[in-house]
Amino acid sequence: MAKVHVTTTVNGQPVEYLCAPEQSLLDVLRETLKLTGTKEGCATGDCGACSVTVDGTLVCACLVLGVEANGRSIGTIEGVADGENLHPIQQKFLEHAALQCGICTPGLIVATKSLLESNPSPSEEEIRYYLAGNLCRCTGYDKIVRAVQDAAATMRGEAA
């Protein structure tokens, strides 16, 4: 089938691409746009490694079609830092050693950002349920939850 022309915005930049109608947004990001920060762990919506935002809503890029990005605004891990400065979530993941291998980290950071934008003071339980779609096989989640709590405090302007 003929490829479809898509006009979209990725991390604030206008982007155009051609994609097959059945191609996933994850595939487009990684293979066409070479934005490989978004990871593939399953391609079936079960691991969260591909977490991105579409018009501010957290989604699994593997479950969204490339054509669905048309006219929308996509946010990926590559757009989380503010220029030269890490986002507080990124900084806290580093300080808390909340990553071991790091393959789940981009997805977790994107998901955490989405959580803290809608709920600046989540309880431990809220954090655990919000991030339940993001698998991490290395850390046992303990240090991730602590990093999220600390990032939330920092973003609320509280001293750690």
Binding site: R30, E31, K34, L35, T36, G37, T38, K39, E40, T76, I77, E78, V80, A81, L86, Q90, F93, L94, E95, A97, L99, G102, I103, T105, P106, I109
Partner: peptide, 23 residues
């Protein structure tokens, strides 16, 4: 010391290249 790992920034920004990231 609980220092920040040398490869940390690349891994929280999506720049670190994993197995499927090469072409």
């Amino acid at each position: 010391q609980r220092v920040i790992r040398p490869d940390g920034v690349d891994k929280v920004t999506g720049r670190a290249n994993f197995g499927a990231d090469f072409s």
